[in-house]
Amino acid sequence: MDFLAWLQATAFATAVAETIWAYPLLETLHALGMAMLLGSLGLTNLRVLGYKSELPLLGTQQLFPLAWLGFTLNAVSGLALFASDAVYFFSSYTFRIKLVLIALAGINAVLLSHRIFREPAAGGGPGPVAKGLAAASLVFWVGAAVAGRLIAYTP
């Protein structure tokens, strides 16, 4: 708690909280990063589930730089937004749920990429485990976006 109080008292956090344009700018970047992340991972996961099977499965790896860019953008903008009101955000249950969902999505992504891209199945396409992981990934990321938007409305 001392750390959170210190964090939101830093010059940077105060600037984010008090400058008129800083907060909406960070929120816009956070929404852009979300669209990058959900767009690229959404298509990849849907492809694993069998959607648009004419797209080469291994080719979806070329979307990963966009996913990483979105993730980095949101880690940075998210940290800055968090710092501006650290005690409030940390005490929010919805914010905690969001962090748990992102952690689950991260673990899930490692497992899925291992299954799909390091040990590609010999023909036949992704198996039931890979499909289950892809479906879980969609649930975790959409859940994280929903939880994020609801932080402002929930305890």
Binding site: A31, M34, A35, G39, E54, Q62, V146
Partner: peptide
């Protein structure tokens, strides 16, 4: 919240199409 999900669908897919038109992810037809 639904507007936010709609944004992800709209901008997420438009971005993929536009970036592909610009030459990104060429292995996706």
């Amino acid at each position: 919240t639904i507007h936010y999900i709609g944004l992800a669908m709209l901008v997420g897919s438009i971005m993929l199409i536009d970036l592909r038109l610009l030459g990104f992810a060429r292995s996706l037809p």
